[in-house]
Structures are given as structure tokens and as C-alpha cells.
Amino acid sequence: MPLSACRRDFLGLAAGAAAALLAVSAAAADPAGDLIQSTAGEVIDIIKSTTPGAARQAAIQQVLQTKFDLPYMGQTALGANWNKASEAQRVRFLKAAETAEARAYSERFGQYGGQTLVINKVTPRANGVSIVDSRLNQSNGQPLKLEWEVRDAGRGLRITDVKIEGVSMVMTRRSDFNSYIQNNGGTVEPLINELEARAAR
């Protein structure tokens, strides 16, 4: 039987972040489009001026804090469990998740080079969300479809999700975290401990 499960690189997931290394070319006059463009620009500068390590991770974390709405993303990723968590747990969760993402992104980018991000259509939604459609052209292989979700949830216009080939970062984390919580007593405490242990590594 052919491994026809070989559909497409749905696992382009990783590349997700890849939005980074990229020379950005775009025709965006929309604030949401501009946000994506400036974010990609900042990340390019970081990749060019640092090597993978603590310095790069710190710089990436800075971008995450200023361009992404991390509290909103964290809340969405925890779903119903967010309401069950105490204020202290929420703070610890967000901090640990932020460190984990910053590390993941800084390591991911080390393996990329020469891609370009082309920003296409910006679709505003009735509920204030803008979907920014973009394409990551790779030197070898098919271009990756990246979609950015941009919204203002009280902290200014921020990125609240990235989708790579249809795979949403927040939705995947949501499934991941939720399943971990279910298999570890149904509370967020073990998840936070695990994320903190990983961040300390």
C-alpha cells in the first residue's frame, strides 16, 4: 500500500515560525498587514545579528511580548481550564509557555535561510479580527501557506494566532494541553510544572 498518507507536509507546522528569516515583500497598506510585515522585519534582523543561543532567545521573546498577544493566546490555548486556574497559576502558565515558545522559535529559525514571505490578502472580520494571508516561499520545495490572525483584545493590535498549511498554533497547543491535563488529574498544576521544568532545562 502506498504511503498515501503522504499527503502534503501538513507538518509544515514547524516551519510555522519560519516567517522569520525572510525577506519580506508585500503590498499591504492595512494596519494588520503592516504588523505582520514589521514583525517579520524585526525577526530577520535578529536572525542576521545573532546565533542560536540565549541572546537570540531573549530577542525573540522580546518580539513575542511586543507583537503577539500572549495572554490572549494562552487563555485560548487553555480553553475551559483557564477559568479553573487561579490567578497565580495563570501568571506562571503564561510565563512558562512564553519561555517555551521563545526557545522553540529561536531554535527553529537557526535551520532556515533564504526564504521570502509574501503578504497577500488581508480579510477583516465583523468581530474586529483580521486574517492576513501570506506565503512562505522556500528555496526548495513547495511554498508554505501562512495565515495570521490579528486582533485588538485590549492590548493594541496584536497577532493572536499563526496557521501553517491550515494547522493553527493555538489550536494545536489547545489540544495538546487539554489532553495532558485530562491525563494528569484534570487540573492545570501538572501542566504548569511540566512547562516550568522544560523552561528551566
Binding site: 507538518l11 494547522v167 489550536m171 489540544s175 487539554n178 489532553s179
Partner: peptide
């Protein structure tokens, strides 16, 4: 943190 669940979600979405 749960590779099985993450892959299940990513596959379904893609």
C-alpha cells in the same frame, strides 16, 4: 507535552 494529541490535532486541521 502530549505528542499524540498534538499530532492528532495537526493532522485533523491540515
Amino acid at each position: 507535552v502530549d505528542y499524540y494529541a498534538a499530532l492528532r490535532s495537526a493532522y485533523t486541521q491540515n
